Computed example of a mutant assay.
Amino acid sequence: MGQRSERAQRALLDSAEELYARHGIDAVSNRKITEHAGASNHSAVTYHFGGRDELIKALLRRQLAEMESRRAELVAGLAADAGLWDLVACRILPLVEQLAALPVPSWRARFLHQVHGVSAVAPLMNSAFDDSETLAEVRRRVLPHVEGVPEKVLQARSGILGHMVLGLCAEYEAQVEAGTQEGDWISVGYFLIDAVTGMLVAPVTRRGGRVAPASSHNLI
């Protein structure tokens, strides 16, 4: 792939991430994305990516690629008997560190939150992350720490927590843009690690009855 084509793809990805974050997935056409990117060819999204879903997958893969090396570093540094908090940190810290490194304004957290909220495209998030070996390793090591929680309850909690993490990050990203934030991204990360760890192992006071459905993007 030539440098010109790479620049064109990067411009389209950046344009899509911003417009999806600001307006929502279904409100943004491929033509709007190409116009915002400054492309003269209104079929540029189709030419470079094949369609909207493929464009969203490319955005998600870009994010994962940027986080994967950091997560691998954290996982490699874990003790053999690492606790749940440290394992959850491997899941959360690469995300907030990536968000902290983006220029202001950034759109990534709000884009992820938009994808998570649209049932037609939310499964793309899981499919983009399914090939991550480090995430698979974190999930495997988390399970013994939550073995007392019924599987359906754990799945539902994981879905709720995925929504919480993305929602809080999206809200904080908007505050950073407005200049009204308190603390910093790393503080947000540690707050989320504490909250996720606590909820995963919270007591199950009633076994049976209705359990909220799991989100399409589970945290573990």
Score class of each variant (00 low, 15 high):
24 G>V: 05
122 A>F: 07
79 A>N: 10
173 E>L: 02
219 L>S: 03
74 L>A: 08
164 M>V: 13
1 M>I: 09
35 E>T: 09
81 D>Q: 09
207 R>M: 09
90 C>W: 03
181 Q>K: 08
154 L>V: 05
160 I>E: 13
206 R>L: 14
197 T>G: 03
153 V>T: 15
159 G>M: 04
45 V>M: 09
213 P>L: 09
53 D>T: 01
34 T>V: 14
176 V>W: 00
23 H>E: 15
161 L>H: 04
131 D>R: 12
134 T>E: 10
128 A>I: 02
8 A>P: 01
133 E>I: 07
205 T>S: 11
69 S>E: 15
118 V>M: 00
71 R>S: 09
30 N>T: 13
163 H>K: 12
184 D>M: 08
102 L>E: 14
15 S>V: 05
212 A>H: 12
88 V>D: 02
119 S>V: 10
126 N>P: 00
11 A>R: 14
29 S>M: 12
89 A>D: 08
94 P>H: 04
126 N>F: 14
103 P>C: 08
95 L>P: 00
12 L>S: 00
10 R>Q: 15
26 D>C: 08
163 H>M: 13
90 C>Q: 04
27 A>S: 12
57 K>P: 00
79 A>K: 09
212 A>E: 13
211 V>N: 02
24 G>C: 07
102 L>P: 00
169 C>Q: 03
123 P>A: 13
82 A>W: 04
145 H>E: 07
26 D>R: 11
203 P>M: 11
140 R>M: 11
88 V>F: 04
123 P>V: 10
112 L>Q: 06
43 S>E: 12
184 D>H: 11
22 R>L: 15
176 V>Q: 04
41 N>D: 15
35 E>H: 05
191 F>C: 07
7 R>C: 07
85 W>V: 07
139 R>G: 05
199 M>I: 14
97 E>M: 10
21 A>D: 02
45 V>C: 10
105 P>A: 10
21 A>E: 02
76 A>H: 09
186 I>D: 06
107 W>E: 01
211 V>S: 03
156 A>S: 15
43 S>H: 13
116 H>I: 05
121 V>T: 11
141 R>A: 05
20 Y>E: 01
209 G>L: 06
37 A>D: 00
155 Q>S: 14
98 Q>S: 13
119 S>R: 12
29 S>N: 12
143 L>K: 12
181 Q>F: 03
48 H>S: 05
137 E>A: 15
187 S>M: 14
89 A>G: 10
105 P>G: 08
1 M>Y: 09
106 S>C: 06
214 A>D: 07
147 E>D: 14
41 N>W: 07
127 S>Q: 13
31 R>E: 15
97 E>Y: 04
1 M>F: 12
90 C>E: 07
190 Y>D: 03
125 M>N: 01
122 A>R: 07
37 A>N: 00
95 L>D: 03
